[in-house]
Amino acid sequence: MLNTLIAVVVYECLVALVFILCWRLVRQVDTRLPISTSEGPEQRLRSGPLTSGRGPQDTAGAHWQVFTFLVSAAVLVGVALSFSGTLADLRASLVASDTVFRTMDLDPQVMRLVLPVGQLALLLILFLLFRNSVLFPAIVVHLFLIVFCLLVSLVDPGRIDPARLTLVPIFTTNLVLLILTHGLLTLLFCRSPLELVGSVVLAAIAGTILALGTMVISLISSLLGGPLFFFQLYLVSAFGIFGLYFCVSSILLALWARD
């Protein structure tokens, strides 16, 4: 159980680290948009129709985009499934190696509360430190949610015990949403053969992220039940899977995209 807890905490710390790195990188990207119709003599005399949209509209051929969409989806599914298999073995050995800690006499209920209470404490600290930060509203909403979950769990403490849940629907939902997200971005962003290759590489990374996130959800499900589990599920899905995917694509865009 202690191993499981450590693995979840390490994963959540890694996600936080990626977000911080991405924040620092994105902060330096110049996103100002020049007004396209403001100055210049030709603009003053112009009287013909204006084409809506500013940027170059040339994209890779539709058939290439559809092809890339299909290849990306196949790569994403393939990597997610095969990596999930590898991680399942890792998860089993992780749980088995908990024997190391059997000599430590720890109450399972206390262990179950470590993660949510730890997050509550962290959010309380952030609440006090980040009052003027743009992150403050996000901290307030998450503080409200975790307090609510803890209160609901207090009403019926038995619900904290993990129940046997099948993770297939969660994995499938996230997989479908990730394929759609990646596919839509490919259609919009990829214009050259190199960018189409980049899209396939990103699909492989997305598959890895999904497999890793699902393993963490699986670990959490063996640790927690009831509303506290669903709160963790929300955190991992929103930030640990989709957030990470967007962070990676964002880093790629910030570093390599040329408009």
């Binding site: 990188l25 994105v26 948009l33 940027g55 743009v134 408009d259």
Partner: peptide, 18 residues
């Protein structure tokens, strides 16, 4: 993409803030 500024999209992971 329409604005010809794909790099601007890189802030999207932080949409949760707003």
């Amino acid at each position: 993409v329409s604005d010809g500024q794909r790099r601007a999209f890189s802030a999207v992971p932080f949409l949760f803030v707003s």
